[in-house]
């Protein structure tokens, strides 16, 4: 897993971006846009990663706990 794919880190990054917007009294449009783009990228990766994790999770469930799901 690359550092970029680490959900916890990504969450921290996103939280930081969210805080940046909340704390900034005056948002620089350019900078804000940059932050949004950065966040969008992180979100995209995170969603992708979440999807992967979810799929893996389903696989594991099938292997180990299929009967338990019944």
């Amino acid at each position: 897993m690359s550092k970029e794919d680490n959900l916890t880190k990504n969450l921290e990054k996103l939280s930081a971006i969210a805080r940046w917007f909340e704390e900034k009294e005056e948002v620089d449009v350019e900078e804000g846009l940059q932050k949004v783009k950065e966040a969008a990228e992180i979100i995209k990766k995170s969603k992708k990663r979440l999807k992967e994790i979810e799929n893996e999770f389903e696989e594991v469930k099938k292997e180990l706990g299929e009967n338990e799901e019944e």
């Binding site: 996103l14 971006i17 969210a18 917007f21 449009v29 804000g32 932050k35 949004v36 966040a39 979100i43």
Partner: peptide, 11 residues
């Protein structure tokens, strides 16, 4: 976070 950030998106 996405919602929050999108909400703050100046664009």
């Amino acid at each position: 976070l996405e919602n929050s950030i999108l909400l703050n998106n100046p664009e």
